[in-house]
Design a binder for these strands. Structure first.
Lengths: 253, 253
DNA sequence: TAGTGGTCTAGACCACCCG
DNA sequence: GGGTGGTCTAGACCACTAA
């Protein structure tokens, strides 16, 4: 009776740790504040560092913490809402979109899934436009836009010419915009960042990302496919009528 | 010259392992096939079990593998496309939606973020409708729908009455559908499964999930908020005009 | 150069599933 | 009861950052 309650269903230590830390973050820390280092936190809670790290990893996944090698662990700001829905159904690069053209290259070697979506014949040439998206001064997404060469026949010469990289990208986008857009399609799924995307997003390879696959339809078929890779820790993707950013983050924990 | 190339930029072992395993999955395994157990795989690759597990975790995150305690690790089927966009902008529970009502309860204690979205006064009563979504016989999502009691004044008596649980849920939904829907709003972010959602989704607590926050507008304000929790390993959320499920999965790795 | 998080090891024990 | 994945430990070394 007077004894402390027994753990009838002992939850894992890291799970309990996560709860404790989460409450501490709410009450005792403010955004940007730096936490004690992992060795100290582990000692303070009386667990091995690996166990402590398991809790920190989950909190980082939920966007509560930010960890940087050589620097430390800080309290993350609320996730930023990023509009992904077609504000107006238009081509990439149209006025008002938030992406920066980076480069464009011609390639005959694209991911198998993209080749399927574009119904490419094996070895068919494709222009790959690389763009990046920045919000509040922070990189939030990297994108590869795949456009079959047959859809933008005049782009090839321009891409091969010795203009600077962003100009090459804009050339492809400009020609794409000449086509009549008949519709678009989106899917969101969880992935892990490729090495090059990770570098661009200022994360380590394998970091969790939200991958948005956009299909653009023109001429009765898929005229372009975009693979957009968003930082899952810092981004909330918004869709729908009301794109007012309330700055409110909702987590499932 | 004749030597094997040096690792100028030695990538982590688990990263290399992931690549090797991923290629093996493509070429030597078929969906549903069971892999050797972790101790054997670790021995085979000459690494510690923890390192091997780090690779497996990433592959599971990407939807390539499925691991079950007491059973083993199997090759996962391609992610299933789940339509999340408003096919037609309608209330939850309207004909044609894919959710099963489970229960409804009255509560005065809702997540802070939901309270903000609903502009609740402290302690204001809310009906919480619990629903679940099943596709291809597998549970893919769990949902909590929060409706301020003032928006559905007649539901209270019915929820209190001794009808069965799904009927309680349907009562709230029916009254909600009487209101005129003025619009909706969605956001997608990464989260980790709460213990109860995890159980319903047949996963362990903390499993990665895609959290969809939907706001329903009526009477000039937010009349309901839904928090839908989708299994991130098995689901691809689809939005947009063309909801034809091509069954194609695109990953960022 | 000192301090941080990231990777890795070689064990141990536990919770769960199935025959 | 035997085998699986899940949790946990107590170390070690490495890569990176900033003073």
């Amino acid at each position: 009776m007077g004894t402390t309650q027994l753990e009838t269903v002992p939850e894992p230590k890291y799970w309990h740790l996560k709860t404790v830390l989460s409450e501490a973050l709410d009450s005792e820390f403010s955004v940007g504040e730096i936490l004690p280092n992992e060795r100290e936190l582990a000692a303070r809670f009386g667990v091995a560092r690996a166990t402590l790290r398991q809790a920190l990893e989950q909190l980082e996944l939920e966007g509560r913490l930010q960890r940087r090698r050589g620097v430390g662990t800080t309290v993350a700001p609320p996730r930023v809402g990023v509009a992904v829905d077609p504000a107006h159904h238009t081509w990439p690069g149209a006025p008002g979109d938030d992406w920066q053209p980076v480069d464009a290259v011609a390639s005959r070697n694209v991911p198998a899934a993209v080749a399927r979506l574009l119904e490419l014949t094996p070895g068919e040439q494709v222009h790959v436009v690389h763009r990046s998206r920045v919000t509040h001064g922070q990189p939030v997404a990297a994108e590869q836009l795949y456009v079959p060469a047959r859809c933008v026949p005049e782009a090839e010469a321009a891409v091969g010419a010795a203009v600077d990289a962003p100009a090459r990208a804009r050339t492809v986008l400009r020609e794409l915009q000449q086509l009549e857009l008949e519709g678009q399609d989106r899917a969101v799924e969880l992935g892990s960042a490729r090495a090059d995307d990770a570098k661009e997003l200022d994360r380590l390879p394998g970091a969790p990302v939200l991958v948005v696959t956009t299909r653009y339809f023109a001429g009765g078929r898929t005229a372009a496919v975009a693979l957009s890779t968003y930082r899952a820790d810092t981004c909330r993707l918004t869709f729908g009528d009301n794109e007012t950013d309330t700055g409110v983050t909702v987590l499932a924990s």
